[in-house]
Structures are given as C-alpha cells and as structure tokens.
Computed example of a mutant assay.
Amino acid sequence: MPSLQLTDTVGDQVVIAVDPHKASWTAVAVDRRLQPLATMRVPAGKAGYRQLRRFARAWPQARWAIEGARGLGAPLTSWLAADGIAVLDVPAELARRVRLLSAGHGRKSDEADALSVGIAAQTATRLHAARTDEAVAALRALIEHREDLVRTRTQTVNRLHALLTKLLDAGLPRKLTADIAAKALRRVRPEDTLGHTLRALAADLVAEIRRLDRRITAIAEQISAAVAASGTTLTELHGIGDLLAAKIGARTAGIDRFRSAAAFASYCGVAPLEASSGDVRRHRLSRAGDRQLNCALHIMAITQIRRPTAGQAYYQRKRAKGKSHKEALRSPKRRLRDVVYRTMIRDTDTSLLTAA
C-alpha cells in the first residue's frame, strides 16, 4: 500500500519530483520555498502510475521532474508523455549534490532523494525536458545489451585463461579466441580425474565464447542497420564507425536540446573547469558529464592521432610545444566535440527539410 503524508500547501509553483527504482517510485511535492508538501511511495507499474496521477491532482499546474528520466524513470516518463505531460530530466549526480548540501547531514532515503530531485528542479536553470524517442530508446537498448554481452565474454575468456594455465605449461596468448583455445585443447590428453574435469570445463567455456561471439555479431548487425536507417553522417567522420555513431546518438538523445557547442561539451565532460583563486587563473580537467559520450570522443581522438589526419597534425603541434601526451590529446578532443556537434546539427536540419 502506498504511504501518503500531507501538509499545508504553500506557494503556487509546485514540482512533483520522483525518485525511481526498479520496484517502486517515490514522489515528493516540493513548493517554491523548497519545502516538501506531500510524499507518496507506489509500486512501479501502471497501477502505481495511476496512483501518482491521483496524487498530483492536488496541484493541477505542477511540473514533473524525474531523476534519470531516460533510465529507471523511462516507463514513467513515457506514460506521462503519452498523457501530454512534460518531464524535467534531473541528473543523478545533481540530485546527489543537492542532497549532500541540504540540511539533514546528507542522510539517504527514497524520500530524501526525491526531495533533492525537486529542489534541483526548482533551482537549476539548465535542465532538459526528457523526450521519449522510441528509435533512440531502442538504439540505446541495443548498445547497452551489446556492452553487457562483451563484458560477459571478457569474463568468460578470463576464466578460460585461468583453466588453461593449469592444462598448458606455457598458457596461451592474451588475445584469446575460441578457435585458438579449441586448437590448443585438442593437444591436451589428461590421464587423471582433475585433468579430465578441467579439460571438460575449458571445452564448455570455449562453446560459451562461440555462442557469445554469435550474439555479439548479431547485435552489431542490428545496430548497423539502425544507424543506416537513421541517416546520420557521423560515420563519415574519421574515427567513428557504426557502434560509436550509435552510442553518440543514443546517449545524446537529440542534439537540438543543447543550446550551443559549449553546452554539448559540458554535457560530454570535455569542457575544462575553471579552478582559479586570487590572481591565479587556471583550469582543471572535468570529471563530470556523460562518461560514455566522453569515452566515445576519446576513442575518436585516439584513432585520429594514429592516422595522417588533421587531428594528428594538431596533436603533433601541441606535442612540439612541450605538452605531455594527455595534455596534447585534450586539444584535438575538444575540437572533435565541435565537429560532432556541427555534424549532428546539420543532420537534424537536413531531416527537418526532408520531412517538410
């Protein structure tokens, strides 16, 4: 049963803030004074959604804000969008900082988390409205599923390596494939019980790696087809293939929600942060932003500096000025983020013209 606690309504601008989890959603109504008016916890699902809508009737003009609206909050975001209700997407890191800086010594509970989401929605000026683009959501699901499969394959290969060190004196190369392992196992003829058991386990792992390879290949083909259908020209940029283009598109979730290249850079975590004090003016590396997007731009930059490209020439000029490898790499990385931003803006403009 949901819990409901009511206080006197104060203020004419209320935010219904939601902290979503797999099994439950916790909502807090937050007024302009950043005070909680009511709290409710409901089970995640259609029934819980209907209870939240009834809960929100007390504030007909209230805005909705959800932590991770494209993550655990995606189902709730989709149902609200279907009913014509816009949702502010509050990053989890922003809500966490609000909670730590609020009164209460940073104590953590679902109600405190939801209240932090509401405070962030009431005070932050650059939050984005969550959008439910089914094509983008499907692409992100494919990307995340492939990453899970790749992670599982890596773990399986590591277990196989550990077994083979007990069966083979010299072990096998670091880049182990199912075919290499199978060929090596054919030479193993154990005579004791332990050896037979280890060989059988290794054979099972080889079969599992082959199965994972087939699944990863199939998912990659689906991703390539989705990228081709999207009409993106990101794949024309040096260093971006179908997988990176898919990740950038899925994680960005609409380039037009960024007001400028600088805003996109901040979202990706590639914009330097000012760390000045007194007369000293300096900047430090940002650890904020979407780390998956940051990783995609990093891979693109690494690929470019290894080939005769404009990015490589720019990197070499920085190195010639005495910059370290990491310092020199940041410069082309920042330039590439602008190239990616302009390319995605151009793709959006082209698709709008085509639709018209």
Results as ranks from 00 to 15, higher is better:
56 A>I: 05
295 C>M: 12
214 R>M: 07
20 P>I: 00
280 V>I: 15
66 I>M: 08
93 E>P: 01
94 L>E: 05
326 K>T: 14
41 R>W: 03
101 L>Q: 12
196 H>I: 03
159 R>V: 04
310 A>V: 09
280 V>K: 15
254 G>V: 05
352 L>K: 14
32 R>A: 15
78 S>R: 15
101 L>K: 09
22 K>S: 13
313 A>L: 10
266 S>R: 15
11 G>C: 07
237 L>K: 00
169 D>Y: 07
230 S>I: 05
113 D>R: 08
341 Y>L: 02
348 T>A: 15
244 L>Q: 06
63 R>I: 00
289 G>I: 01
261 A>M: 02
41 R>G: 09
110 D>C: 07
116 S>F: 04
207 A>Y: 05
142 L>H: 09
58 A>K: 12
67 E>Q: 13
50 R>P: 03
317 R>A: 11
236 E>W: 02
139 L>M: 14
149 L>E: 10
161 H>L: 08
58 A>V: 11
10 V>H: 12
84 G>N: 06
299 I>Y: 05
26 T>G: 07
54 R>A: 14
291 R>D: 06
326 K>D: 14
314 Y>V: 06
229 A>Y: 01
302 I>F: 08
114 A>P: 04
73 G>F: 04
261 A>L: 00
191 E>P: 00
278 G>A: 08
207 A>D: 15
